[in-house]
């Protein structure tokens, strides 16, 4: 083993340069050239001011907005996209059951029309805690409230939801989902809240 240490050290240096510096450097160069918007975080701006990333969820609390999924835990701030994580609570965890029970009550309170079984994603936490997506069923649940807050008809809001529903890729991959950030931005622009 010991006489192999010299080639080991040299190989390590060569591969560090090749795969640790050249490779990410080349990818960064190409990505900045071809996909510069995506490579820099798919930022969205409004009035020439960056308000977030279309891939990242934000914390919404006002009634005129569609809200994201519940935050995983109290100590994770969903606005802090630099510290990600899920709740990691198991299926028989008292904490999980309590949290879901509270979420169910919350949704039923702020959306009195929601009387049936609630879509799973509306009351459970995501893996990363950072994503702007909700299921179309969850969006439908919130339509009535948003419509009231914006003094619009539910059908008008539904149209916006439709427009911001992302379909399965190639009709097969993934699940249909609504981008809450894009939807709220569009609502603010086209159906501003009257004060």
């Amino acid at each position: 083993m010991w006489q192999q240490l010299t080639p080991a050290l040299r190989m390590m240096i060569i591969f560090t340069v090749l795969t640790g510096l050249v490779y990410p450097g080349v990818i960064t160069g190409l990505a900045q050239l071809i996909f510069s918007r995506q490579a820099n975080g798919s930022l969205v701006s409004r009035n020439a001011r960056i308000v977030g990333s279309e891939l990242l969820g934000q914390s919404f609390t006002k009634p005129e907005y569609f809200h994201g999924r519940p935050s995983a835990a109290g100590d994770i701030n969903e606005n802090d996209a630099s510290a990600s994580g899920g709740s990691n609570l198991g299926p028989t965890s008292q904490k999980l059951i309590d949290r879901v029970r509270a979420s169910v009550a919350d949704i039923r309170k702020s959306n009195p029309d929601a009387t049936g079984a609630l879509p799973g994603d509306s009351v459970t936490a995501w893996g990363s805690g950072l994503v702007p997506h909700i299921s179309p069923a969850t969006a439908e649940l919130l339509v009535a409230r948003v419509a009231r807050a914006r003094a619009a008809s539910p059908d008008a809001i539904r149209q916006f939801v439709q427009q911001h529903t992302e379909r399965r890729d190639f009709g097969v991959l993934g699940e249909p989902r609504v981008n809450v950030l894009a939807l709220n931005l569009a609502l603010d622009e086209r159906l501003p809240v009257k004060h």
């Binding site: 709740s87 799973g120 994603d121 459970t124 936490a125 893996g127 299921s135 069923a137």
Partner: peptide
């Protein structure tokens, strides 16, 4: 319009 199942910790 939704996946059903166990969505805790899933995207």
């Amino acid at each position: 319009s939704q996946s059903g199942g166990n969505m805790e910790g899933k995207e």
